[in-house]
């Protein structure tokens, strides 16, 4: 059974590459039973949105 570290690693990689069938199966099994990883999965796209908002928003702060 996959642990949370490996599950989040796959969830992260899924934003960069297509997972293999077996990776997807193992991931589903784990995430289906793990609330922490479910939340992590939901929050990943929001990190991207936040980064975009950060890069394009008007804050008169310098680098």
């Amino acid at each position: 059974m996959m642990n949370c570290h490996d599950a989040t690693f796959l969830l992260s990689q899924r934003r960069e590459r297509t997972l293999t069938f077996s990776e997807r199966m193992k991931l589903r099994l784990h995430v289906g039973m793990c609330r922490g990883c479910t939340n992590f999965e939901r929050q990943l796209p929001r990190l991207g949105d936040a980064a975009k908002a950060y890069a394009t928003n008007s804050e008169d702060k310098d680098v």
Binding site: C4, H5, C37, N39, F40, D49, N57, E59
Partner: peptide
């Protein structure tokens, strides 16, 4: 074992969409 520690397990986020562009969030 590679499982979340209790304190670090991701919790649900209340809907943050509206907040992303607020200056507090960006800070």
């Amino acid at each position: 074992k590679g499982m979340w520690r209790d304190a670090d397990r991701p919790a649900r986020w209340e809907d943050p969409e509206a907040d992303l562009h607020s200056s507090q969030f960006l800070a």
